[in-house]
C-alpha cells in the first residue's frame, strides 16, 4: 500500500471546556524530537484535511504528544468526536522552530483562548531557565478558560481575565499588559499566543515601549514543510513561510491586516464543511436512535 493506514492512537481524551479538548496521541518518532513552540500536522482520515496544532506537551518516554484544540470548524469538531482508542491517519512533526529559551530576566507570557495551551510549555521552560515569568491568560468567558493551575505553577505571577467578567478581571489581556509594562517594570521580552486579533493588539501595546514581542502565527497550512507557500505571512521585509521560518515571529514586523485578511479566505467553504459534518453527525445519531 502506498498510503499506509498506520494509525496514530488516541490514548487519552479530556474535556477542558465546552469547545476545548485535550488529546494525548501516541507518536514516538515525534515525541523524541518535540520541543516547546513546535507543532504537528494531523489528518483524521482519508478524506480529511491537514491541520496544524501546537505541541502542548510531550512525553519522550511514553512516546506521546499532547494536543489541545478548540472546536472551530469541520476538522476540529470531527477530531473532538473521536475517543480514546480511535486512531488518526496522519500525524507528522515536530514542525517549525522551537522557542528560543534562555534567561532573559523578566518575561511575560500572554495566552488568549486556546492560545493558553501553547503558551504553557513556553512559560514553564522560561521559568526553568531562571526567568521571572509574569503571565496573563484570558478568554471570552469563564467556561473557555483552562489550565489556570498549570499556568500558575509555571509563573511567578498570573493574571486571569475574561471579556465578560465571568471570572477573574473583566478586561482584555492587553489591559494588565499595558499596566505592567507602562508601570515601569523592566520586561525583557513578551510572548503572546492567541487569536490573530489579540496578538495584533498585544504588539500594538508593546511597540511604543519597544518591548520585543514574539507571536506564534496560526495561518492556514497544508503540508507544513515549506512546499506550498499557503502559510506565507507578510512581514515588513517580505513574506516568510510560517511552517518553516516560524511559527514564532517578531510581532512588530508582522503586517497584521494582511494576515487577518488571509485567514478569512476560505470562510465560505469552512462553513459548508462544518455544516455538512454537523448534518451528517445528526443523521448518524438519528439512525442510531432508530
Amino acid at each position: 500500500m502506498s498510503e499506509f493506514g498506520k494509525g496514530y492512537r488516541i490514548l487519552k481524551k479530556e474535556i477542558l471546556s465546552d469547545v476545548t479538548k485535550l488529546m494525548i496521541i501516541e507518536a514516538p518518532q515525534v515525541a523524541k524530537k518535540a520541543q516547546a513552540g513546535q507543532f504537528i500536522i494531523i489528518k483524521i482520515d482519508s478524506k480529511g484535511e491537514r491541520i496544524p496544532l501546537t505541541i502542548a506537551d510531550y512525553d519522550r518516554e511514553a512516546g506521546t504528544i499532547t494536543l489541545i484544540f478548540q472546536e472551530v470548524g469541520k476538522s476540529t469538531i470531527h477530531l473532538g468526536t473521536l475517543n480514546e482508542g480511535d486512531t488518526v491517519d496522519t500525524f507528522v512533526g515536530p514542525l517549525g522552530h522551537p522557542t528560543e529559551i534562555k534567561n532573559y530576566g523578566t518575561v511575560m507570557c500572554v495566552g488568549g483562548g486556546v492560545g493558553i495551551a501553547p503558551i504553557y510549555p513556553i512559560a514553564r521552560a522560561l521559568k526553568e531557565a531562571g526567568n521571572e515569568v509574569i503571565s496573563i491568560i484570558g478568554a471570552r468567558n469563564k467556561s473557555l478558560l483552562f489550565w489556570e493551575d498549570k499556568m500558575r505553577a509555571a509563573s511567578d505571577e498570573l493574571i486571569v481575565c475574561t471579556d465578560d467578567g465571568s471570572y477573574g478581571r473583566k478586561c482584555l489581556v492587553t489591559d494588565p499588559l499595558k499596566e505592567i509594562i507602562g508601570g515601569g517594570k523592566k520586561v525583557a521580552q513578551v510572548w503572546a499566543i492567541g487569536p490573530a486579533i489579540m496578538m495584533k493588539f498585544v504588539t500594538l501595546a508593546t511597540r511604543p515601549l519597544n518591548v520585543p514581542t514574539i507571536v506564534s502565527l496560526n495561518t492556514i497550512m497544508i503540508d507544513g514543510t515549506g512546499m506550498c507557500g499557503g502559510c506565507r505571512v507578510p512581514l515588513k521585509e517580505g513574506a516568510q513561510f510560517v511552517c518553516v521560518d516560524g511559527p514564532e515571529f517578531d510581532g512588530h514586523a508582522v503586517e497584521w491586516d494582511s494576515l487577518l485578511g488571509r485567514l478569512q479566505f476560505y470562510r465560505d467553504e469552512e462553513k459548508i464543511a462544518a455544516d455538512r459534518f454537523k448534518h451528517e453527525c445528526n443523521l448518524d445519531k438519528a439512525m442510531r436512535r432508530q
Partner: peptide, 26 residues
C-alpha cells in the same frame, strides 16, 4: 497562490471533490 499550493489542494488533497473531501480549493 503558488501553483504548488493550488495543485496540492486539487490533487493530493482531492480538493476538486470538496466538500466530500475536506480541503477546499477556491
Amino acid at each position: 497562490m503558488s501553483a504548488n499550493e493550488f495543485l496540492t489542494r486539487v490533487n493530493l488533497m482531492m480538493g476538486y471533490l470538496f466538500p466530500e473531501y475536506d480541503t477546499p480549493v477556491k
